[in-house]
């Protein structure tokens, strides 16, 4: 698969201004902008990085350039959410979709390991799509806990937080210049452990209708807080109540910004 992607990228580089993908050198692996003439044999597919964020950054800086990106299922979902929020211009983007393997899907508990390329004007899929992996068993286990036990669980988890803001910084759909989490009005500065419920619940609330379940916040967390248990539950809620799955549908806008006519919610109060 990797050779196929490398060939495709070097062919597309003739027409594009560059392709965002991971490059492996002696130093390590990180996202880079491959341009024509670059050594595509350095292009690799592991580990994961929030490339949607990189694409957005580059598109904003180079306003006329057309870039490509090598994207997994989670990356394309993040790209869709970023397009909806006007952070990415889909017409200036070409996508090499990479279908994750069964093993990769299992490590991420990924429900949709194959990138959905239908919404994109220009895209190619490489690799054979595999079915979704079963969800994180911790979520089901968690749902059986009583309220007191849940409180205790998160109390223990959130006291480990060292307030590094890594969960926000790595998140492929977090982009605001002014962040509530840095506003002293909402999150008291200089407090370690950060205030519960402020820091974590504001973050979680901002992830509703937006979290694409890439789980990168969890890998970036130095304290090992299982954030995605919380985010998976919210995703489920948003799916059940509003019928919205972040990253899945390019045509429906962010439901929290829409009226009840455009994005109804299953609630007595909505009548």
């Amino acid at each position: 698969m990797i050779q196929e992607i490398r060939d495709l990228v070097s062919e597309k580089l003739k027409k594009l201004d560059g392709v965002v993908a991971l490059r492996k050198t002696d130093q390590g692996t990180a996202p880079t902008l491959f341009q024509e003439g670059d050594d595509v044999s350095q292009l690799v597919l592991e580990p994961r990085y929030p490339v949607a964020k990189t694409v957005s950054k580059l598109q904003k800086r180079f306003k006329d350039a057309k870039f490509g990106v090598v994207a997994r299922g989670c990356d394309t979902r993040a790209l869709v959410e970023m397009v909806k929020r006007h952070q990415i211009d889909p017409d200036r983007l070409y996508i090499v979709g990479m279908a994750c393997s069964e093993e990769q899907a299992e490590t991420c508990y990924c429900a949709e390991p194959a990138p959905d390329l239908d919404p994109w004007p220009e895209a190619d899929l490489v690799g054979d799509p595999v079915p979704g992996a079963p969800p994180n068993p911790m979520v089901a286990e968690y749902e059986n806990l009583s309220r007191e036990e849940r409180w205790d669980f998160w109390n223990q988890q959130f006291t480990k937080c060292i307030k590094c803001y890594g969960c926000r910084d790595i998140c492929p759909v977090c982009f605001c210049d002014a962040c509530s989490l840095e506003d002293p009005l909402w999150v008291e500065p200089g407090l370690l452990v950060p205030d519960f419920p402020m820091y974590h619940l504001i973050k979680a609330m901002h992830m509703t209708t937006r979290c694409v379940a890439c789980r990168q916040c969890e890998t970036a967390c130095p304290a090992g807080i299982p954030l995605t248990v919380l985010y998976d539950l919210i995703r489920k809620d948003v799916g059940n109540l509003i019928g919205y799955i972040p990253g899945a549908d390019a045509d429906s806008g962010p439901p929290l910004s829409l009226t009840l006519a455009d994005a109804p919610i299953d609630s007595e109060l909505a009548k």
Partner: peptide, 22 residues
């Protein structure tokens, strides 16, 4: 220099950074 990304394949941080590193 416009930003920082953690080094996901490095054995020390293993993809995590603290606020100073970020």
């Amino acid at each position: 220099i416009v930003g920082v990304l953690p080094a996901n394949d490095h054995p020390v941080g293993r993809g995590s950074l603290c606020i100073k590193g970020w």
